[in-house]
Design a binder for these strands. Sequence first.
DNA 1: TTGAAAGCGCTAACAC
DNA 2: GTGTTAGCGCTTTCAA
Lengths: 338, 338
Amino acid sequence: MAVTMKDIARVTGLGLATISKYYNGGSVRAKNQKLIEDAARSLGYVPNEIARSLKTKHTYTIGVVIPELSNVFITSIISTMEDLLRQKGYAVIVCDCRSNPELEKEAVSFLLRKQVDGLINMPYDVTGDHLRPAIEAGTPVVLVDRILKPLEGQVPAVVLDNVDAAEQGTRFLLQQGHRNIGLVLGDRGFYTTECRLQGYLNAFSGFDVPVREENIRCGNYTMNGGYTAAKQLLALPEPPTALFVTNFEMTLGVMLALREAGIRIPEDLSVMGFDKMDLFGEIFPDLTLVRQPQDAIGLQTARLMLELLSPSGKTAPGTITLSAQLHRGKSTRELQNP
Amino acid sequence: MAVTMKDIARVTGLGLATISKYYNGGSVRAKNQKLIEDAARSLGYVPNEIARSLKTKHTYTIGVVIPELSNVFITSIISTMEDLLRQKGYAVIVCDCRSNPELEKEAVSFLLRKQVDGLINMPYDVTGDHLRPAIEAGTPVVLVDRILKPLEGQVPAVVLDNVDAAEQGTRFLLQQGHRNIGLVLGDRGFYTTECRLQGYLNAFSGFDVPVREENIRCGNYTMNGGYTAAKQLLALPEPPTALFVTNFEMTLGVMLALREAGIRIPEDLSVMGFDKMDLFGEIFPDLTLVRQPQDAIGLQTARLMLELLSPSGKTAPGTITLSAQLHRGKSTRELQNP
DNA sequence: TTGAAAGCGCTAACAC
DNA sequence: GTGTTAGCGCTTTCAA
């Protein structure tokens, strides 16, 4: 049987309340403090957070439900959130639902039974039905990276301004004189994919340049997908003079395909990447890209959750939209004869 | 206030014990079962696992402490473990200790206070001191990927036979006639690094070939590290005829460096990779590599934990060693004039 | 099969 | 500052 406060009480001769108060930062006579500390050490006492939770009604646990763990964007956001959350005393239970709506729903109810204080979700099921039980139970929910139309106004979210991000990137290439611009997207139907496509189209219509359907490819947000998409784009009768790739993994795949084909960047082809700079590191020392502020996304999400959890906080369920920043590197060049 | 069993009891007119039994799979009269289900649905009852845990002494929660989340080997192992564990009703709390022994120690005590049923650790602190509190508290611990000398015989572990893996890879290259073989390792001092180096050396002494010190490079287990190491190896007065790269991220970096340098594989240089095959996917369609059985590692770890947790199970704290398998791809070739 | 009651380890009034 | 006590939501004898 584990050591409990009762044991400490017995050994020290103090009352339970005193010991409890000590562990909750209350003021205790110095002599008794020493008594408690000594007893705790010699008995090997570890406070039981479960029992405490039962009483206090909060578990200091946050559930995080994500579609996939094998994606640097997701893992880097999780790391950032976890750092802040743990610093504030919260544990994080991560549930990878394997891009499966059934598992996603299950994960939510699982976490609810575990009495998590809050739920952070990068949603997969676009209906948002999986979150209904949480909302009904009054458990705070924060969405990351994607909003859910059916839940708009009910659940706050932290997202990138995806339309603007893609528009920025595309506009830059257009300004450089490119007219034939390949776009490598994630799968259709995803919130981010659709937004980024919209941004691309917006930029084109802003320049009054017609869009070539065949230039738009879906790379599934994976390295392989990007690789394949690049090969297809290169094989077109009129291959693009510039490529805009909309996430990290796909950019990696695209770069590999280009190297394999012996294509020089930016002499033969301009490339615009996406996502976080430092992950590309020294390998693509100065890739032109749309920088997604992932640290800020993770931070804001955690902060928002913390705010919802604070006794005062009942923040309005708005959407925090963060802006991407264009980084002008050396992988793009001005087209001489547009 | 949340809905509790008491509410169900009140509504149905049944006793607490009956309802509890129903939720624990006991047999209840069909009529009452329906009564309970209806009441639960209309009230929105969710069983409180916290209260249950207080009584039953187990939380169905496993703590996982890892050095870093941004590494495909680690995330893929976590995903595999989590799948099995969750399937058995266990939640997984992942703590990324950022390769910081202080944080690692803190993570363990944090999880202990949370009353996790077990602890899975890919250890960073080689002294293993951070795990002492868990061992003293009688909480089952399983190590993954690395063993801890000071804790040998006290804590079971699941690891790759790293020496043999590296020996296999190196021996294959030697058999192909290579004598000048570059080795790209992780940082010195790590368990896996030292084992893999040992394997390399073993193979050389088996062939009675002297080892060139300058061929051994540390790439920090990162993509950038691999990239840099490859550049350095290529710049040697007598560059190697083959490269053995000992993890996924570094292999990626090495491949990029080689492509950049316009080196053909395997015509100009043979390359042997490491880690899981399918992550390389179609991009390096047939890379020769030492395949690490990561799924098996994750599975065995989870299984071992489950076994320790089962009422019967008090498995001996041995080490499960899994073997790597050499995959003969097309990135290596026999040297004609050795 | 069902119900009454005790108690898991802790917190929080409240009285001292 | 300290001790007494009730009770968080559940499980689990034990008797009916």
